[in-house]
Design a binder for these strands. Structure first.
Lengths: 204, 204
DNA sequence: GACGACGGGTGACACCTGTCATGGGGGAGT
DNA sequence: ACTCCCCCATGACAGGTGTCACCCGTCGTC
């Protein structure tokens, strides 16, 4: 019996996923949580063998949750199950200690197999996503450039960003200009879009 | 036996949803599709009593699919099941002839009930969402303003937008300015964010 | 030690944006 | 007819934005 923990903020998806996996004879869902910051406590209480984590979650995101989980319960394998196949997420997930990375657009039967493979200690990665991830490489953005883009996400002005990050407006403009150049964009908004699509920015 | 059609682009969610509903004795999933433009054909072939449609789908979005479905198979009830609780989506869904609107963040047990209620001819609407929808009212944007915001979504310049919409740059700026004023934003990007959050723009 | 990459800053400049005034044309309601 | 609203357009203007050159200090590396 493989003991499972499921973390997803959408109750319907979470329940449906549980129903799907519960149908397998060798799988058993022992815990369900809806927030990233509930993962650790639930895992400690129910000692799952495999944790299925969504990336987008309230509280803390799935990647941070995976890190905490790996720190606290090293024997528990982590399988990321996410909506968006952003290549950057895969890298971050693997760096966070995840054993697998599956997009929600995979055949339903494959999930149970993925869970079993992960439980055996194998790595499971969506092949097309892995190719994309390797093809494009790491994020070209420096930490500060990412911060600035992150702050520019909801459409604030340079002054707003400077206020949030406690920077001079000129510095913000410089970082933005650099980020725009590196992303191949021609506008700040375009640069944000590119960075988000590639998973170079934090989730949420 | 209530015959169901499930339309969702994420294979995992679709399968899991089917598994969840299949567990009910009075429900039967007769068709699953992953694209909006496959809904009509599948419905004609399998004659479902209730169609569960996601809003975000490749091909055509769930709202357009609901319209087609209502035109072609009036006896088939439509229940929208979506990720994002954008108040504007609810209005559009109801206008498209949907009988119900459920967010994916509802308890799993409630879905089967919703399906049964819809099948009986009742309307099912998320209460908190209905309140929001009523509170904020319709989109204040004119058609052209929505078009311009839609075109501005991926961060293009005024010239780009003007090129796509075959408008003068000045006109684009005017529409943008008007949209910014109506949304209470202070930047084009902010206006886009507000409009998207409220469901005033088309999905995708 | 020299070098380069990064973070932070300033100043200047061309260009883009957002706003406003103003105009014309068309459709809907009174 | 008159009014109101929407759409399209033009011109002008202040302010925001993107780019560049140049500066400093720090840190890791060769």
């Amino acid at each position: 019996m493989i003991r499972l923990l499921i973390a997803d903020d959408q109750a319907l998806v979470r329940g449906a996923l549980a129903a799907l996996l519960q149908m397998e004879d060798d799988l058993e869902v022992v815990a369900e949580v809806s927030r990233g910051d509930e993962v650790l406590d639930a895992a400690r209480a129910h000692q799952p063998d495999v944790a299925l984590l969504d990336v987008e979650m309230p509280g803390i995101d799935g990647l941070a949750a995976a890190r905490l989980l790996k720190d606290s319960l090293p024997t528990c394998r982590v399988l990321m199950v996410t909506t968006f196949g952003r290549p950057g997420y895969l890298k971050q997930a693997m760096a966070a200690g995840a054993s697998g990375f599956v997009v929600k657009d995979t055949p339903a039967r494959a999930l149970a197999d993925a869970v079993r493979r992960v439980h055996q200690g194998l790595r499971v990665v969506d092949p097309t996503l892995a190719a994309e991830s390797l093809a494009q490489g790491d994020s070209p953005l420096t930490e500060r450039e990412s911060d600035v883009l992150q702050a520019a996400r909801d459409g604030g002005t340079v002054a707003d960003i400077a206020g949030v990050l406690f920077l001079s407006e000129g510095t913000v403009r410089n970082h933005l200009s650099s980020a725009i150049g590196k992303t191949g964009a021609r506008t700040r908004a375009e640069a944000v879009r590119v960075a988000v699509d590639n998973g170079w920015l934090l989730p949420s």
